[in-house]
């Protein structure tokens, strides 16, 4: 999709994030590329430690350097974020690009009032006065569905429930109407019922604000629910990318198929001949500290061959708009 790249809101090109550790270099992200169009929801899926959170943190340049070393390019509205001076970068954070973090219980500052934390971004980026910022904070709280916003705005995080705190986080993130919202496992720490509410809220707000969303998750249910397109990451690399419908209908990479097998399905065990247990992917994610010559998934792949161990498969189109990095992924005639 080279033509799309030009118009993309965000394009990450060959991103490499390496951490220097006492026992070697950790290649947390190793040559990942993807792009997000305005208003699109892109999901990045993978196990813990596959580099998805590191990718999102490098977009905002929030990784401490050193030990992190970033290479490649991250273009946002045509500007390379990796070469931007820190001052310029600060103007983008919380303004054009904002984040919702995974842990609502610990991501809010316990000693600052909710109103001050929402208002802070408005005062920083839009130069609002303290009073106007608080007014806007009340509106934001109402927007994210917090009852009695005028009272809540003066409260502190410990006086709110987990779901409410995540709503406050969303209010902070959306206060300046960002063009890109990075949601890093936004629902993982919440109750299932609250999860649904938060997802509904995000979808609703996305419609209103028109922000693109980069959703980082390991929850395929969430992906099916909200994403337009999906990038599957494994051991610091992108192994598959497709529109959400294509991915769920015909996953082409064995790792993606493994992920889907690891999702519980109601009634699946009662079917005759069905496995009694949840399918798991055998083995462990390889260490990111050793260079892997072959396919990164070779050690755990059920259909691994000698070719996989010696030669890394290229990430190539297997169907229109569907990329996968596997020698043996089924390939549609049209794609070639």
């Amino acid at each position: 999709m080279p033509d799309l790249k030009e118009s993309a809101l965000l394009s990450v090109e060959n991103l490499q994030v390496h951490f220097r550790t006492p026992d070697g270099v950790n290649r947390a992200v190793d040559g990942v590329s993807f792009s997000i169009q305005s208003g699109e929801t892109l999901a990045i899926v993978g196990e813990s430690g596959c580099g998805k959170s590191v990718t999102s943190m490098s977009i905002l340049r929030l990784l401490p350097e050193p030990p992190a070393r970033l290479a490649g390019a991250i273009r946002f509205e045509g500007r390379d974020l990796l070469s931007l001076p820190e001052r310029e970068m600060r103007r983008i954070r919380g303004n054009a690009i904002s984040v919702i973090f995974q842990e609502p219980m610990t991501s809010l500052n316990p000693v600052l009032s909710v109103g001050r934390q929402i208002g802070e971004t408005l005062r920083l980026h839009q130069g609002l006065s303290r009073k106007d910022a608080e007014e806007r904070a009340v509106e934001m709280l109402a927007l994210v569905g917090i009852p009695e916003p005028r009272r809540r705005v003066r409260e502190y995080p410990h006086q709110l429930s987990g779901g409410m705190r995540q709503r406050v986080m969303i209010a902070i993130a959306l206060a300046c109407s960002p063009k890109l919202l990075i949601a890093d496992e936004p629902t993982t720490a919440l109750d299932v019922t609250i999860q649904a509410q938060i997802l509904d809220l995000m979808r609703d707000l996305k419609r209103r604000v028109g922000a693109a969303i980069m959703l980082i998750t390991h929850d395929l249910g969430v992906v099916a629910e909200v994403a337009d397109r999906v990038v599957v990451m494994y051991a610091g690399r992108k192994v598959e990318e497709a529109a959400v419908r294509d991915l769920f209908r015909t996953p082409r990479h064995p790792y993606t198929r493994g992920l889907m097998g690891a999702v519980p399905r109601l009634g699946a065990a009662e079917r005759p001949g069905a496995p009694q247990r949840l399918a798991e992917i055998p083995g462990m994610v390889p260490s990111l500290k050793t260079r892997i010559d072959g396919c990164v998934f070779a050690g755990r792949c059920p259909s691994v061959t000698d070719l996989c161990r010696s030669h890394a498969p290229a990430l190539e189109p297997k169907a229109p708009g569907h990329l996968a990095a596997c020698h043996y992924a089924p390939k549609d005639a049209l794609a070639a």
């Binding site: 600060r90 954070r93 919380g94 904002s98 973090f101 610990t106 991501s107 500052n109 920083l124 902070i172």
Partner: peptide
């Protein structure tokens, strides 16, 4: 080390 410090940075706080 706390998460809320990361949040502050992500908000563009100097």
């Amino acid at each position: 080390q706390q998460d809320y410090v990361r949040t502050a940075r992500a908000k563009g706080v100097a």
